[in-house]
Nucleic acid binder design. Structure first.
Length: 134
DNA sequence: GCCAACGTTGGC
DNA sequence: GCCAACGTTGGC
């Protein structure tokens, strides 16, 4: 099993929206690095769900329920989508401030490449995040 | 709302 | 193939 982090602006699509919907298509990604990460995802992989902008915290864990297929919002066949579903919310959301303040996360992509919207997370990082999230 | 960091585009 | 110009993301 592999671990990932996906960003969403809560004003556009929040964790609560995902819970309400039961599952959602993750489409509209238009960045090659992010797309390649989407394509590497397998059913059952875990996704840390991060609220960017207003929020700036990891709020819960989602799961890949359908692996990569052509993005229906794209006519060119260049881009890919997946489908995710919520697994559980954190008792205590893990904020960007907390992550940045901890040297354990110095190498985390969330810190080093803050613009990448779909990124891999190591098992160590994942385990510590979910421990902090409760 | 500003702007730094990063990606992409297009002229040369 | 380089790089300046431009657009976007996302933290502050």
């Amino acid at each position: 099993m592999n671990y990932w982090l996906c960003k969403s602006e809560p004003e556009t699509y929040s964790w609560q929206d995902l819970v309400n919907d039961g599952s959602t298509i993750w489409d509209g990604v238009r960045n090659y690095a992010a797309r390649n990460n989407l394509r590497a995802m397998q059913v059952g992989d875990r996704i840390l769900f991060y609220h960017s902008n207003y929020g700036r915290e990891i709020v819960g864990i989602a799961e890949v329920s359908v692996s990569a297929f052509p993005d229906p919002s794209d006519d060119t066949g260049t881009w890919s989508s997946i489908i995710i579903k919520p697994l559980r919310a954190f008792k205590r959301p893990v904020s960007l401030d907390i992550i940045k303040a901890d040297v354990f996360f110095l190498e985390m992509i969330l810190i080093k490449n803050s613009r990448l919207s779909v990124q891999p997370v190591t098992k160590k990082e994942y385990d510590k995040i979910i421990q902090m999230g409760g």
